[in-house]
Design a protein around this nucleic acid. Structure first.
Lengths: 350, 350
DNA sequence: GTTAGCACTCCACCAAAACGAGTGCTAACA
DNA sequence: TGTTAGCACTCGTTTTGGTGGAGTGCTAAC
């Protein structure tokens, strides 16, 4: 079941060649392409073995071979650690982007949106990027203000200057003094807590403390919890969805439509995000090939995700979605850079 | 140059038939389709005239005719006032949506996003919807708070409970008293003004009033003006971009890619929005056919836009983007309903 | 174990042919 | 004078058949 060195070399050649050309690759091509000095006939025998073992497959008899999901997997896991050499080019390339990125940007959301676009332009694949997950993020500041009548505005500022608002309807008129008291209560109790610490027991404790305004406080906290609840705690930006159409193997309207649809819809992408970060071996970068992806409509694609981490512990997810024959090396390299640059850019805007 | 009644009937038949089938329509089809009781030969003669006058055209010799932009225009302007009959169906259809629309929605943004989706599902075209234009919207409430160190948070609430935030970096520490004073100054001066009234002279007047804090006030107002400046004063939501791929005449990857691209990019759509509302004849509904649209990538499409108006004078734009052979009647009908429903739904959530 | 040779398969490409929808024109008709 | 039947013609679409080539698997020889 294991692959000897020669088979590895051949498999690698198949994958590399296929990544470059997008055409099934034949034995003759390989026999020239490699430094193995083997005839095409020998290669053929080896390729027959590789096919039997499930690493490559034939679209039809008398065509060359293309990598199977399993073949890509081996390639990604064991064969692609070398490109680091040409890294300077990329560094330059991306540094140019940097300026554009930070220019005129004053909030994280915009930064992330721009980054998604840059990444899409750079890779020619579709990209997504989530705002940081907030549940482990601390509350920095909370304030109620009476807007008019029985509406009060609740503003929360979280670490990283992420701002959430909510208008709350209450059924009693509140004078300024009451609001002031409430503000002090809320700030003194909640500041510095992470959002996941603000839970039910917390609420009932505070409800007790507030006595007369108990019910009001409950209303407010309920609204607050809802505003920052996990469902809404992050947004997802996508870019370059139409890059999908550049790859013939994804370009039938059925497939493409579903794919672009999920990118537009965004909800389904959360699967990708929650899953990322579990296996943190390769510097937080994870590769899903074909059926490995948790998103149904991407079964014919590969997805590379990375966890970015901003200065103050904010974490989010970046993803690149492309055809299975995507340039994994480049994407991984680029994502590593993006991770750093997000942090840099973020420091500049805060 | 004008069209007699018979020519009108024939043109109408061509358009209708083409809308239904998407295939070029021939003389024989028309001779059966209409109540004119004319032979196909006669129809042919008339169609030759219509073609000469530019109302219809032939994709190639020996194919049937399809409407030209000019033909669609006549159809839209003069021939399609009747479908109102089947209106009850639509009413039902959309009422079902209503519940879904308002469910769990607590802010305008979400309402609009949902509406875009419902509209897209309903029509099978791509849709866009802008948040209300704010420049004629009044400021209800403004508040500064010190968040930490030299960062202050500025929160603005506008009519319709639209909330804008901005974190402003100042180069001096501010004590609570100063902030309180500033708040009073800002509120007393700016409340009730529309955003377009807050302009440069306003700023310099206030800068003068604030004396010691003059520079600070300038900083704040600059930031404020920037935050609500026309560029950023509205967002655009799109939905159903992939519906484009359902129509063969738009489905070559070149065209489709540019179209979906502009929907994703959104910036270019502002053209459509600013233009809408100028000609307010047909209850604020405007139809752009082919080359009439102000957006380059939609030259092969038709676009129908409508101005919606919420209870308290907030106005925004809804748009439907589809092939030139879109079902104009249905779209116009639906948009009219949507306008009403947006207002209804909006009342419920405020 | 490797290689050359060969028969075989199957897709991609091309040209020719058949088809059919629809036209324009002409001549006859009311 | 307007309408209609008839017919030759056009042109895109589909079908058919043929050819070339890329690549394979297998066998026999090295």
């Amino acid at each position: 079941m294991e692959l000897d060195e020669r088979k590895m070399k051949i498999l690698q050649a198949v994958v590399k060649n296929y990544l470059e050309t997008g055409e099934p690759v034949g034995s003759r091509t390989i026999s020239k392409y490699t430094d193995l000095n083997l005839s095409s006939a020998t290669i053929r025998n080896e390729m027959a073995d590789l096919e039997e073992q499930g690493y490559i497959l034939q679209p039809h008899t008398s065509a060359g071979r293309i990598p199977s999901d399993k073949g890509y997997r081996v390639y990604v896991d064991e064969m692609m650690r070398e490109r680091e050499a040409t890294l300077e080019d990329k560094e330059k390339e991306i540094n140019e982007m940097k300026d554009f990125l930070v220019e005129k940007v004053d909030r994280v959301e915009t930064l992330l949106q721009n980054m998604a676009r840059v990444l899409a332009d750079n890779t020619n694949y579709a990209t997504m990027i989530s705002t940081p997950h907030l549940h482990s993020n601390r509350l920095k500041f909370i304030q109620l203000s009476s807007v008019e009548g029985n509406q009060i505005l609740c503003v929360m500022v979280l670490e990283g200057n992420i701002i959430k608002n909510k208008i709350i309807n209450v059924n009693q008129d509140l004078d300024n003094e009451t609001i002031l008291k409430l503000n002090i209560l809320l700030n003194s109790t909640l500041n510095g807590l992470t959002l996941e610490q603000i839970n039910l027991e917390m609420i009932s404790r505070m409800t007790g403390q507030a006595r007369e305004q108990g019910e009001l406080v409950r209303d407010i906290l309920d609204a607050l919890v809802e505003a920052i609840s996990s469902e809404k705690d992050m947004e997802i930006y996508t870019s370059g969805a139409t890059n999908i159409l550049k790859y013939p193997e994804l370009n039938d309207s059925e497939r493409a439509s579903r794919l672009i649809g999920t990118l537009e819809e965004k909800k389904l992408l959360t699967n990708l995000i929650t899953e990322t970060g579990s296996e943190d071996d390769n510097r937080g970068i994870q590769i899903y090939i074909g059926n490995e992806t948790p998103v149904q409509s991407m079964k014919d694609c590969s997805v590379v995700t990375a966890t970015y981490e901003l200065d103050d512990g904010l974490r989010g997810t970046i993803g690149v979605i492309g055809p299975k024959r995507m340039d994994y090396e480049k994407v991984v390299e680029t994502l590593k850079h993006v991770k750093e640059q997000l942090d840099d850019a973020y420091k500049k805007i805060t």
